[in-house]
Nucleic acid binder design. Structure first.
Lengths: 229, 229
DNA sequence: TAATTTAAGTGTTTAAATTACATTTAACAA
DNA sequence: TTGTTAAATGTAATTTAAACACTTAAATTA
């Protein structure tokens, strides 16, 4: 290691967010039309530059907050992209984060500071720079995480039906699941609260609503429980 | 996103490497005594600053190359650390990489450009800055990766015995494995070449040496094979 | 050269987890 | 009251993982 801090190069560090949402059947990402050069008018992830007074986590939260007014969003650092010419305007690195947005907050986001639009992950438009690579990596990461952490719940409203939960996992994992096996598995985890309420919009019989029991989950984790779906 | 590149802050970006090795029974990491301020004389990961003319992968390779003369080392980006005061000298971010070093190259490394020393991961000394956190994260990542990618082989000499392979996995996963079950599992993967040669140093009978069959592995991956140990 | 020593090499049985699969029930509508 | 629709439910079969102990090869020594 060279000992000299003062001779080391400084670089521009951007931060881009892959914002996931879920809308009944499909996993979505939120994109904006870039409103400045280069690549003005093209679809892009939501992003910004890191300030030297903040951490990356803080920058990610700031950017999401500015976009949406939303606090307390699930965020996870993904990877730092550093190809020399990834941004044609100037040498810029970018640390990608992914965020999981509760369906109830979708509208708030699309109406926020940017003309943002939700796209099915499978039907996303061409993106600027290396943003497509970021999205691909985020999907893989989400897929892996969702199996061993109850991340999914971040993407659902507070109250949800079993079928919604199943459809969500099917969308994340991009496969079909057997209804009975799925319910048996979820029930075996014993981290849901079954409410007395029913969602009557989908059928005559109505389907029971559930809530994620965070306290119970956290306690189980303490006791060495390993979530696995 | 603010449209103005020119008003954005630039930052110092360091790169630190968690270098893993394996020595018969224990998973090791390579550390150096830092030879400049701050924290001069304390144990540290091997690192350096990113140059604006190179990618992070290139910087990681350069730093390892300078340290060891070794090329073609397994490297993977881990995480970018950005706590404000992580380096007391100056606001510095650091992207951590981890590397897997073949036992045959161990000596070359310790004799290289630095007074480097191998430590059992369980008996590592106090490290500067947030390096302990980096190491902890690297171990978790390695553990997860080793289960679904044949990374382990990067840590072994070209020819190895089944027992060495088992001990390696035991060291990475930090648990004991059953000899017969392990061998059955590895044989079922069908990605090793059994040589006619024996290692006679460990017993009278001698134990057969094996090589990892990269071609076969790559071909199986193409065909949708999923490695799982 | 026969007997001893030492680690290597080898299969089977049991338990657990996963997968496949079809009928009944609740609520409303006709 | 009957029909319709999606919700709710359990078991058997298969696959995978875990537990477990004796035989063999080669060098050493008596």
């Amino acid at each position: 290691m060279l000992s000299n801090y003062s001779t080391a190069d400084k670089v521009l560090l951007a931060l881009d967010c892959i914002i996931f949402g879920f809308d009944q059947h499909q996993l979505k990402i939120l994109l904006i039309k870039r409103d400045f050069e280069p690549e003005k008018g093209k679809w892009s992830l939501i992003g910004g530059f890191l300030k030297s007074s903040e951490t990356l986590d803080e920058a990610a939260n700031r950017i999401l907050q500015h976009l949406s007014g939303l606090d307390d969003i699930y965020l996870e650092q993904l990877y730092t992209f550093s190809e020399i010419d990834r941004d044609p305007a100037e040498r810029t690195l970018s640390t990608a984060y992914y965020a999981l947005i509760n369906s109830e907050d979708h509208q708030q986001l699309a109406d926020g500071a940017y003309k943002a639009q939700w796209f099915n992950v499978k039907e996303a438009p061409v993106l600027i720079f290396d943003h497509a690579e970021m999205v691909a990596k985020a999907i893989l990461r989400l897929r892996r995480r969702a199996i061993t952490k109850p991340l999914g719940f971040e993407l659902l409203p507070e109250k949800f039906t079993m079928l919604q939960l199943q459809k969500l996992y099917e969308a994340i994992l991009d496969l079909e699941l057997d209804k009975r096996n799925f319910i048996n598995k979820v029930n075996a985890l014993d981290i849901l609260i079954k409410l007395d309420e029913k969602d009557m919009t989908s059928s005559r019989k109505g389907s029971f609503l559930y809530k994620f029991d965070k306290e119970k989950y956290d306690q189980k984790i303490e006791e060495g429980f390993t979530f696995k779906i």
